[in-house]
Amino acid sequence: MTLFDGFMIRAALAGIGVSLAAAPLGCFVVWRRMAFFGDATAHAAILGVALSLAFDAPIFAGVLIAALTMGYAVAVLGARGHAMDTMLGVLSHSAIAFGLVAVSFLSGVRIDLMAYLFGDILAVGHADLLVIWGGALLVLALLWWRWSALLTATLNPDLAYGAGLDPKREQLVLTLALAVVVAVAIKVVGALLIGALLVIPAAAARPLAQTPERMAVIAAGIGAASALGGLQLAFWIDTPTGPTIVCVAAGLFAVATLLDVLRKSARA
């Protein structure tokens, strides 16, 4: 018996790990108006799952590669002047459709697709925990290292060039971080709801923050609280865990927004 033996404890650790990485990254997703980009990357994960099963490769690797490919495809097509939201719609839904079709070809493999679409946090094992925390720490380290450059490039690309930075490289850093988060989060909330873990905590943190750093920290806190709260709530009322986590995050967003409205009307 070790400390991590209880499945609830493992689930809690997995949820916290994913939230801590997803929330600060989600701030950039919100600031750069990339919410659809996050969704497209997450949906590519289903295609990644199908490919890993077909080639008998680890799910994590397949999802990572599919997510990176999606990021690259978006960057290339975006540079060719396609309308961004239309293109993301095309890529995002195509990825999920091709993924579902590809999985149906895999004869002899019986997989629970629901687990990849909506996550299966209660089934997280020791190895999964290692991957999740490894990936989360990698993303946090990446964000920590590039923080100022990322912020400057987010404000204005020319401002970044003027300071000797390359905004395209910073965009690549974000694409990479997003792919890693998707790869580690698919087990926890599933491909369909990863976007929620990115965007909702960041959006909830916005009215409570005065600086970008504080917004990232508050978002991480809200993300972790949603994971723990959702896990507990799902246990009590017997609901699917991944969606319950997102519901709690949405509830926290509503509370933060309401507080902000009340504060503003009190000042007015």
Partner: peptide, 27 residues
Amino acid sequence: LGYVPQKLHIDPTLPLTVARFLQLPHR
């Protein structure tokens, strides 16, 4: 080279004080 861009749009979702802005990209 000190660069002053044409009007800079700051997304309202990005909380940024003047003091913090001046610290970008270098402290």
